[in-house]
Design a protein around this nucleic acid. Structure first.
Lengths: 225, 225
DNA sequence: TTTTCAAAGATAGTATTACTATCTCTGTCA
DNA sequence: TGACAGAGATAGTAATACTATCTTTGAAAA
């Protein structure tokens, strides 16, 4: 049996739903490749259009601008990750085991998911590490947030906070700890590869160690005192 | 007695040292104001030149491009902060007290420092919160890092890691914890103001609570077990 | 079968951005 | 007296970030 996975997306994220057409899917697939290759700053709709074999105007029918496309990609990623998280922690009762799963899911390499043909999750994961925070680090965060563009991120954070409270209902900072786990899973990974002096994993470059650091951090904090 | 403070800067950060001329100082002062007002994406050398009353070409004599200017500002900030950190923790022996100082210095509002006339540290602090990570989240981090552009950040991280080891020499992740403190001091602040659902301080919007969260996180992790 | 209409191709054009180049003026240090 | 650094003035270019409009195509509704 072949299963296909579709992440339901907020329609404020696009002008025309890229999941619904061939061109739309090409935009997603090729933008992931191009951003991964050149970084978000050097990425332009012109280059993307040339890559796909369409025109700039064609891309603009789907996304208002390249920032919105980045927000779309991040939103998709967080939605996909939450699906996996819920799927992987299903039937597990022990919140400690759940939390460890969460940390590993966030901190270690993602493998391409065959259930989404037009998205290479491994590349997307790398993009989120380097470019993810640029989705909200703008002077129009507030307006974007009002349009619910960051809902998938906030939902994921809420799910993790929930598990933290299951472990210790008295812990005072479940949401902040959840966003810390998410951000640090990515930043420590980025640092390890690019600015190793900022981590303790520079020599080994082993992302499992990032996960162990986060586990230590989280369980020390939330253990009942 | 009037004291003037000069942070020694790596000369790879600029083409002509902005601290040495009137125009240079104006560039720094006005760029801080403009980036704070419009955000880094909308900031251009043209606007800056108009603001100052000089020309674009004039700015380009000091900085290769706007990204380099951002890197300069962040480097300056980390240098300045490390000076304050060392100054404030001088003569303190208890590493726990030192660490609390560090956390508060990082997490709470900076007041303008009269010792640096052309730099408004309060505004600069806000800029670092929103734009700081964009200094290194690029596809040319590695080259920039080779030019030592991020040295002040890494030095600060090393100083904090040192204090962590003073507290508990057995702790396994001093650097990663240090970079976590630095990043989270800023991110939790940003989230509190702009995406409050990602924190536990949304209602109060009290940056002291960010500091308390970080204290709890840090001391839980490094306490001797 | 015809019409209708959404999607996308084709082409053009604009304001702004991100630079580079060159020439002149001015003040100062040697 | 002149040499030279710093900066003002002006011009120009390639690329970026869009917007507009017109045509073609293919598939479904009338």
């Amino acid at each position: 049996m072949e299963v296909q996975l579709q992440i339901k997306m907020n329609d404020k994220l696009f002008l025309r739903d890229p999941e619904q057409t061939e061109l739309g899917k090409k935009i997603i697939r090729h933008s992931i490749q191009l951003i991964h290759k050149n970084g978000f700053e050097l990425f332009t709709f012109k280059k993307l259009a040339e890559d796909i074999g369409t025109t700039e105007a064609g891309i603009y029918r789907y996304f208002e601008n390249k920032h919105r496309l980045l927000v779309y990609l991040t939103a998709w990623y967080w939605g996909w990750l939450q699906y996996h998280l819920v799927f992987n922690t299903n039937n597990i009762n022990d919140p400690a085991v759940k939390l460890k799963k969460v940390i590993h899911l966030l901190a270690t390499t993602v493998v391409d998911d065959a259930k989404t043909i037009h998205i290479n999750e491994a590349l997307l994961h790398q993009i989120i590490i380097t470019e993810g925070s640029k989705a909200y680090l703008t002077n129009h965060v507030t307006e974007d947030n009002k349009e619910q563009l960051f809902k998938p991120y906030k939902d994921l954070c809420a799910v993790i906070a929930e598990i933290i409270l299951e472990y210790n209902s008295k812990y005072k900072y479940p949401r902040s700890l959840a966003s810390t786990i998410i951000e640090m899973a990515h930043f420590q990974n980025f640092f390890m590869t690019n600015l190793p002096a900022l981590t303790d994993f520079g020599k080994s470059k082993d992302e499992l160690k990032v996960a162990l650091f986060l586990e230590d951090l989280v369980f020390s904090s939330i253990r009942k005192k």
